[in-house]
Design a protein around this nucleic acid. Structure first.
Ligand SMILES: [Mg+2]
Ligand SMILES: [Mg+2]
Lengths: 594, 594
DNA sequence: AGTCTGTTTATAAACAGGCGG
DNA sequence: CCCCGCCTGTTTATAAACAGA
């Protein structure tokens, strides 16, 4: 049902206004816009938290106590000048005109107009106070103190994407997927006015930081050495584009857009850390029909599998939406306190109670210790496990409480990756990825072995787009065809995408054939030939991934249903939110004064 | 001359007081303490900047505007409780006694007593004000506002080591090189009282952050899954210990301790970012005799090579000392404006003007694009290039200006690493590390090829200890024996350590045979057998490294002599500090008001 | 329910190197 | 030609969000 959107509505929200808003947005969206909506009751939140009226809390007053312009202190430049090269904010806010010139970047073919965080070019009359020491450094006040006016439509809403994601958007928007730093800046400013109009100049520092930090991004130098271009390691490039985040590429594939409506929750974070509480993300829903409104039936491929999701948007009382889910199959039976899962059809039960496949307990994920052993762990990989977009979903909530509790075949514990996922190139046997970390040659044997237990967990597809090939249930981790087809790239993967954390996803490579690296679907690469024979050096094979969103314990199996249960309007009864904790408080509205 | 220390003295310092201080310290040190000192005139600085009287500037006033304890705001816990589990600072500073109990960690066999940043347990009478909202969160005020009193001897000086380095110290101090998080905390608090007495509780957050971020650190789980231990990937473990930083392991190897005396320079950094301006670091000096006082002659192994260093301590007007240098051979002749180098004996000139070995220009280092080609690039690897301790030294200052300028054989440009150094395991051919990044199968040919130019640069030994085997000059990158011998670990490396940045050093592995992984020299592993046959899975081969110190552009060829020239008291005439810039100002004293 | 542990992102900063005014 | 400031790139520090135990 490509024209369908699932909308999670705060309990306290006015349903009619939601509907009105959605209808309006659907019109803006044009013919491709969703015409049907699935409404789910979400956590809390009041109408004033809605996109347009979000108050952008308190990041202008940061002040920070650091004497900025002490002209006599010659301490080495606290980030030199570095003002935005765009004319905006160049002068001390003298009623700038925001020429919005230099729309030189990629064509704005993204139909961005309907996204709430994408306001138009700021056209406010600024000129507010505090303009004295005009910010010339990156570590300065936000570009515009003019927050009180036009709190929307000028990028007041920070986009919900992480820097890493935005950089990927930017680079992948170019046909050759290569961008200079300045171009990245410009692209982001053009597509996310927040950064031009609102963010402090330090955001450019963060861009550079991300480029350097993540080895997904590599720098290439022009032959003459004069120009540096940033690229995405082809093995790691999931070819994320901003388009894909809200525009479906292949209507044939069932896709549902999802709108998370913000829940009030004030942050004390620094400006760029605090995120808007809602945004549009595309996901491929794979929920059992019982989760939906009675009238809705998803034309799923295989037998409808479970695999969670949805609730993602509400974790932490409207924290932020998770894109690129860490989707792990729920344990087969036996699991306790997993409200959403209860009503879901479970994947084909893998060999239950597979001994030696699970770490006794203790696992905050990551802890890449050893590559998955040849005897593949039991990995539940139900059909509907994969989500089209990076919407966070994870029903692997089963806390893995009792150690070695029987009946929990798919424990999904501490996936292993051999501290570097590298080396399993097509030219080499897959088993060659033994580059591992756990070979500390002096460990007492119990220590060596235990972490090597290779339960797959979390994991799966972070791709915002879904290929037509529906993922097939692969309980034995064989013949699996992870949904990395990417629409046009149909190269199947021999190995299932096994990674346990966003970081790994981000850093590691795409589990596609080298021939398909860098071949992204769609019109983004019109001038590029299929380039099939190009994979000179076969990089390490590994599932590539990316994280769209901000900080948080993404490394672990997220979206514990008990934490984020969206109280679906459908029949699914929230089976008692177990062990609420602080997050429960967040889900209960009005506690936050605001 | 193992009993010799090089002391860099600020120009404005009172020499007699320096000598007195050094003498006193030497006595504290005991029989092993240095009895001879080499004094070098350094940048600037006034006596009050000396260790004991450093003012610890202004990190208590940060304030930060974020309302901390707003009891009604239920925003998810801004770092829960998390007070130091040690009793120190438990109450609101009620004249704490600092029981200093639980000296349970490794035996303090480090003879730490002579290090200035290691004060005794704080014994001040504290009880100062501001004790109202006792810090219970990690993101709180520093443990003790009592800075005004007893500004020394209680850890007032932040140790000069990065978190990564300290974690290595801690873990490697255990015989089995395995530590729980809490043990790491305790070890650091015991050995660096700063963190117990002065630092804000957030330092523990940073420890955890470092453990997670750097994949050098891996987590292992006990068989029952109840306990997590942090270890160092054996391939990456350089077996750094705090001992090695100031204690010479093998007196046969020439080692000289160095004392950098602080230069006044106020920072506006946050507490933990601002570092003390001086500390002891061991280096293996390899300077031509002309650089030293006439009476000093270093018994260097091979013909005295150049290779810089020294000046390291003074960059940025007493920024911070660099440990674990990024030592790169200086260009042979032709280089411009390299004062220190001028007077140094240069390494044997490698094949001059090796075409196609150098990137045309443009390089801020890192930019791992392709693995080093089989035809090894010309890498100047002069004997004295290596320093015993991690003292930063880098004479590769030659800006590599003119592209393909002849006469500069050792261009050291943009080393390449194939975005993941993995896969070249002993079991596999070295050539198999083709996991690379530059295989973007759609790049126009010029872009593909250019970054692949494989000039080695920077690089080399970050080890704080030096093995007896003197590095041999290897202009052709063959038969090189990088100084990774580590004293007792004499396993030679087949591949030279080729890495270009501290990060790479940190992340990548030690270029030792797998059998030698985890085998660190000395008494640290008394209870561990030689464990030769333990390397089950051969991890990626790659030079291991580590960085001891804090932030900064370590990735690039550092220690531009023009920036840090210490004005040695010896005959070396500072050949005109080229292109001073802002850093020049920093070197000139008194400009900073203080 | 709170704390501890672990993972990840955001932000600031230090500094190196290059370039252009 | 040199100085100097800005831009770019790398790395560490710090705070924070959040998950899991
Ligand atoms: Mg990078
Ligand atoms: Mg780690």
């Amino acid at each position: 049902m490509p024209d369908t959107q699932v909308v999670v509505v705060p309990q306290s929200a006015d349903l009619q206004s939601v509907i009105d808003s959605l209808s309006a947005r659907g019109k803006e969206r044009g013919p491709q816009g969703p015409s049907k909506f699935i409404l789910l009751s979400g956590g809390s939140g009041s109408p004033e938290d809605w996109p347009g009226s979000l108050g952008l809390s308190s990041w202008g007053e940061d002040g920070d106590a650091r004497a900025f312009g002490n002209p006599l202190t010659l301490n080495p430049k606290p980030e030199p000048g570095r003002r935005t090269d765009r004319p905006v904010e160049a002068k001390p806010l003298s009623s700038a005109t925001f020429p919005s010139k230099e729309q030189d970047s990629s064509p704005l073919n993204d139909s961005l107009t309907n996204i709430q965080w994408l306001g138009g070019m700021c056209s406010d009359g600024l000129g507010s106070g505090a303009g004295g020491r005009a910010s010339e450094k990156e570590n300065q006040e936000p570009c515009a103190q003019r927050l009180q006016l036009s709190q929307h439509l000028d990028g007041a809403q920070r986009p919900p994407y992480s820097y890493m994601a935005m950089i990927q958007f930017a680079i992948n928007s170019k046909p050759d997927r290569r961008m200079t730093l300045k171009e990245i800046y410009t692209w982001i400013e053009d597509h996310f006015p927040y950064f031009r109009n609102v963010a402090k100049p330090g955001w450019k520092n963060s861009i550079r930081h991300n480029l350097s930090l993540h080895d997904m991004f590599t720098r290439e130098t022009s032959p003459d050495g004069k120009i540096s271009f940033w690229t995405i390691r082809p093995e790691a490039n999931r070819c994320l584009t901003l388009d894909q985040v809200y525009k479906q590429l292949k209507p044939a594939v069932p896709q549902i857009k999802k709108v998370a409506i913000p829940i009030s929750s004030e942050r004390k974070m620094k400006p760029l850390l605090s995120r808007p509480e809602s945004y549009l993300v595309p996901i491929q829903l794979s929920l059992s029909p019982s989760l939906f409104l009675p009238s809705v039936q998803l034309p799923l491929a295989a037998p409808p599998q479970n695999c969670s999701s949805l609730a993602a948007e509400f974790q932490g009382g409207g924290k932020r939406v998770r894109i690129a889910p860490k989707c792990a199959p729920p344990p087969v039976e036996e699991f306790k306190e997993d409200p959403l899962c209860v009503s879901l059809t479970l994947g084909a039960p893998a060999a239950p109670n597979h001994p030696a496949q699970r770490v006794a307990r203790g696992s905050r994920r990551k802890q890449y210790l050893a590559p998955p052993p040849r005897e593949e762990p039991v990995l539940l990989f139900p059909d509907s496990t994969f989500f089209d977009s990076g919407l966070t979903s994870d029903l692997s909530a089963s806390q893995d409480t009792g150690l070695d509790s029987p009946g929990r075949a798919c424990a999904f514990k501490t996936p292993i990756k051999g501290s570097r996922p590298a080396s399993s190139t097509p030219s080499k046997p897959i088993g060659s990825e033994n580059a591992a970390a756990s070979s500390s040659s002096s460990l007492p044997s119990p220590w060596r072995t235990s972490p090597r237990v290779t339960d797959a967990r979390d994991v799966l597809d972070f791709s915002p787009i879904r290929g037509p090939l529906g993922p097939s249930l692969t309980p034995q981790n064989q013949n699996r065809t992870p949904p990395f087809g990417f629409g046009f790239d149909s190269t199947p993967f021999r190995e299932p995408p096994l990674f346990s954390s966003p970081r790994e996803l981000l850093t590691s490579s795409v589990r596609r054939s080298p021939a398909s690296w860098g071949r992204c679907p769609g019109q983004l690469l019109p001038d590029r030939g299929p380039g099939p024979g190009h994979h000179e050096r076969q990089p390490e094979q590994d599932p590539g991934g990316h994280q769209l969103l901000g900080p948080g314990g993404r490394g672990a199996g997220r979206l514990q249903p008990q934490l984020v249960t969206p109280h679906p309007i459908a029949q699914v009864t929230p089976p008692r939110p177990p062990r609420a904790g602080l997050l429960t408080k967040l889900l209960t509205p009005a506690l936050v004064s605001r």
